[in-house]
Design a protein around this nucleic acid. Structure first.
Lengths: 351, 351
DNA sequence: GACCTAACTGTAACCGCTTGCATTCCTGAC
DNA sequence: GTCAGGAATGCAAGCGGTTACAGTTAGGTC
């Protein structure tokens, strides 16, 4: 554990009072090093135009005093906060139950920590929360925003764009294709891959459990699926869920009711795939013998389902790292281009 | 969407320059209201000793200017940051894969947002990260710390205590029973309840899959389990995992190898219970007919496992709400007492 | 030797807000 | 009519940094 620095000072006006511990400030360092505050500041901020001797003295003084810069003062002076918001706009229960959210959060936290930025978690679920978040971000308390999971035409996003807050979205927010930087996977291509795999297995009646129509995954994965199936595509064999286990189970039940002879399913999330498998098992179907199932995400869940899921792997570490990289560039005033990453098929037992 | 306020100002010294948008400050509000900055500040901070007329004018001015306080300036002046760290000390892969973490995080985020505090996510996995976190917190950049999942005798926690940083831990950190405020469930009592349920089912050979010995859950749940079983307790029928699915599966395999006639298992997490069920199924055992399984946590997972888990419900919402409440009290200088909450049995199909 | 330049350092003016203190104004008591 | 006392307000000194600017050296150059 590094020393949690402090300096022992004797209050001047109150000789009788007990000495009180104070955080060392740049003044203490300057005094200890025998230089001015300006020079100390220069050393801290890269040390340009500082003589080697002065720098050495200051560094020594920082060491002995246990000095650590006060970020509030720095932020006030510079106008930067060196912090970034991780902004969730989904209704809470949906997102926090989603293992992919934790994966993104972890990646973002790691990438930001490495750049010495602070991650502030912001939840904009209820209207009141949205209002507060809007104020908070608009007031410049964070330098930029990592936007997670936005549905179509989110007014919050409109506000961010209008206010000129650097923002990077995860997945292309529908309706904002051109006015926001995004990191996303190749949704259409991924769906092609998944569908091709099922076709390659010789499956004939292939159904899909898609995501909500107002999310990019919900829309574009259906497009790829349909394209790949071509003539095999059956209009009625697409059901929609909200990525949750329950919705996957319900969708599978609906599909089965429509066509009991379905022999393959492509689900747009691992959780929906798991739900579908539960329904299939309850209906007496074997996976993968009777019905092959392909999931999406390759979250930790995929390997734990019985049978383990064949699924499209989303590179969450890369996605979050790219989001952070692009956001920091945007904060620096550059105008980075959006990034699309490939997703790859991971074959396990379910298909 | 609330207006992201700003004020149009004409730079005085550069008449030719284009007007530039600036955030309104307390000065703008004071000018607009025709009062001093001090009065505006008083209105913002509760409005004591301000005449109703002045207050009305200020509130009006805040509205028209779109003013929103700069937290950095405020923090600098007050010494408070109005933010709280959510500090993770586990190796990352373990924690982020754990659905209970998301539940706690959600609860904390919600409770803090309601009190208008900011949640800063801090991860102290690697030694370097720990160093940075230690500095960051020690420097007073957050008012307090919500400590998640600490193993025994964590030097980071020592440092927090030594530095006098208000801290509330989730689960009693072993070795720190007396010097840190905690919110925990009744570990021993919960284990009693779970074991009693299995005994009540008429099970004879009851095994346990416990957590790591250096975590409170890992230690005290075994105590309660053993107490409840009394004579029925068999020394060799306790295996340890790390709360993960895989470790649960492995532990179950070990138990089965030791005694194939086991007819009940109490796992200290739902994930380990799910892993155990996978192993049992692979071994040709039916749950619950051949082996009854009780989990722990009642995370979202519990209802999705096949068969759905009977499990000890941890009241995560209450836990996180209490943690926030106690922390804010501690920050205000009170010395709140630790809290222990009961966990309750939720009966589903697995036992 | 005068002069210029570059490298370094100190000074002080902010950044936007809070808050102790002084000031003003008003009311009621004597 | 004077004065105490309290309410409302203004004033200005911080909070701990950054940074433009000015000042001081020292080393060349001619």
């Amino acid at each position: 554990m590094a020393p949690l620095g402090s300096v022992l000072v004797e209050p001047i006006d109150a000789p009788a009072a007990r000495p009180t511990r104070r955080k060392p400030t740049i003044r203490d360092v300057a005094a200890a090093a025998g230089v001015s505050r300006g020079t100390v500041s220069r050393v801290i901020n890269g040390g340009h135009w500082v003589s080697p001797e002065a720098r050495a003295k200051v560094e020594q003084a920082i060491e002995t005093t246990g000095y650590y810069a006060n970020t509030h003062a720095r932020s006030l002076a510079t106008g930067r906060s060196d912090s970034v918001a991780f902004l969730l706009t989904e209704p809470q229960h949906l997102l926090f139950a989603d293992p992919t959210f934790a994966l993104l959060l972890r990646g973002a936290a790691e990438a930001l920590a490495a750049r010495r930025k602070t991650l502030v978690l912001l939840v904009a679920g209820t209207p009141e929360e949205r209002e507060n978040v809007s104020h908070f971000v608009g007031a410049g308390h964070v330098d930029g925003v990592l936007l997670i999971s936005s549905h179509e035409k989110d007014p919050l996003l409109d506000g961010l764009i209008a206010a000129g807050v650097p923002t990077v979205a995860c997945g292309i927010p529908l309706g904002h294709q051109d006015d926001v930087i995004t990191v996303s996977i190749d949704e259409v291509g991924s769906a092609h891959t998944a569908a091709r795999h099922l076709v390659g297995l010789g499956r004939e009646r292939i159904a899909m459990i898609a995501g909500p129509e107002d999310t990019p995954g919900g829309r574009f994965r259906v497009v790829g699926f349909r394209e790949e199936l071509g003539d095999r595509f059956v209009e009625g064999l697409v059901e929609r869920g909200d990525y949750s286990h329950e919705s996957g189970a319900a969708a599978m039940a609906a599909l089965l009711a429509r066509d009991p002879a379905i022999d393959a399913v492509f689900a747009a999330s691992d959780r929906m795939a798991a739900g579908a498998i539960a329904t299939l098992r309850a209906a007496g179907k074997n996976v993968p013998q009777d019905v092959a199932v392909v999931g999406f995400d390759d979250s930790g869940l995929a390997a734990q389902v019985d049978p383990p899921l064949t699924t499209m792997h989303q590179p969450f570490d890369e996605i979050s790292a790219e989001m952070v990289r692009l956001l920091l560039e945007a904060i620096e005033g550059k105008e980075p281009a959006s990034v699309t990453l490939p997703a790859s098929l991971v074959t396990r037992a379910s298909a």
